[in-house]
């Protein structure tokens, strides 16, 4: 994957989003966990979408999920971006949240819904993005 050309977006600071990107820079995946209802959610926002509480904190994620849906992209919105690549929604199954991400380290034709994956870090232009890669079969 040609990381020089991906992403053109700043990840603004501020208490809502900065901790997420500071954690990714340390190769740690975090997620908001509500102190009132105990549920995780994503993306970070001021009120828990499940119960409306503002009492939530970032907690570490185990980074283990399954593919909820995916597509193998053959024509990138940014034509400089190397294809094919995989866009997916991954469920962090144990923790009950999901995120839009890329699946890396595996050919697109081998990806399937339900596939166990784990977080894998994508570096570009000084940012670190959470991608996911198939979990070692032994570890499943």
């Amino acid at each position: 994957m040609n990381s020089d050309h991906r992403g053109t977006n700043d990840h603004p600071g501020g208490e809502l989003t900065a901790p997420f990107w500071e954690a990714t820079a340390r190769h740690e995946l975090v997620r908001p966990v509500c102190g009132s209802c105990g549920r995780s959610f994503f993306v970070p926002q001021y009120l828990c979408p499940h119960c409306g509480s503002e009492n939530w904190e970032y907690e570490p994620s185990d980074g283990r999920g399954t593919v909820a849906s995916y597509t193998v992209v053959h024509r990138a919105p940014d034509p400089r971006f190397e294809t094919p690549y995989v866009v997916a929604v991954v469920d962090l199954v144990e923790e009950g949240w999901s995120l839009m991400t890329n699946i890396v380290g595996v050919p697109g034709e081998e990806v399937e819904i339900g596939m166990p994956v784990e977080v894998s870090w994508i570096e570009f232009e000084g940012d670190t993005l959470p991608g996911f890669t198939p979990r070692e079969k032994a570890a499943v």
Binding site: G7, N9, S69, Y70, F81, V87, T101, N102
Partner: peptide, 19 residues
């Protein structure tokens, strides 16, 4: 902040429905 970096567009968004 959280989704554009994965290079989404209308077609990929609907492809996620199709799969």
């Amino acid at each position: 902040i959280y989704e554009q970096d994965v290079q989404l567009n209308v077609i990929t968004g609907i492809a996620l429905v199709a799969s």
